[in-house]
Nucleic acid binder design. Structure first.
Length: 123
DNA sequence: GTCGTGACTAGCC
DNA sequence: CGGCTAGCCACGA
């Protein structure tokens, strides 16, 4: 079970559309906390981060995109645009992002500032 | 209750 | 650019 803190982070993170990215810092601010690190921690320990590689139910909208975790933790990057970490491996994270239209070069998001989903865009 | 750990950040050298 | 430091916070042992 996610804690209330994690719930908050996840609900915020789910607002990030595909093709966009956000940062640990932005999430923290949006959640009105300074727990940058705790945000990262929530990612690695969240039970919903698992990527569905094999959606059986084709009616499931998530089935169209094999990389559709309930919580899109791959859309979270570091504040300077670098990729950061990922439970399934940095490489995989980059792949997924690329699939969604986010180009990553030298471990950094291209046009990071443009793609950034800043805190005032959260509800 | 305390302690260590970390997918972080910002500042300094 | 790389490396180190001090803050930061939640969580599990």
């Amino acid at each position: 079970m996610p804690t209330s803190f994690e719930e908050k982070i996840y609900s915020l993170l789910r607002q990030v559309p595909r093709g966009r990215v956000t940062t640990y810092g932005e999430l923290a601010k949006a959640a009105k906390t300074k727990a940058y690190r705790a945000v990262g921690r929530a990612m690695k320990s969240n039970p919903y981060s698992f990527v569905r590689m094999d959606a059986k139910n084709q009616n499931d909208s998530r089935a169209k995109n094999p990389y559709a975790p309930i919580v899109p933790c791959h859309r979270v990057v570091k504040s300077n645009g670098e990729i950061g970490g990922f439970a399934h491996g940095i490489k995989k994270k980059i792949e997924i992002l690329k699939k969604e239209g986010v180009i990553v070069k030298n471990n950094k998001v291209v046009d990071f500032e443009k793609l950034l989903f800043s805190k005032d865009k959260f509800k």
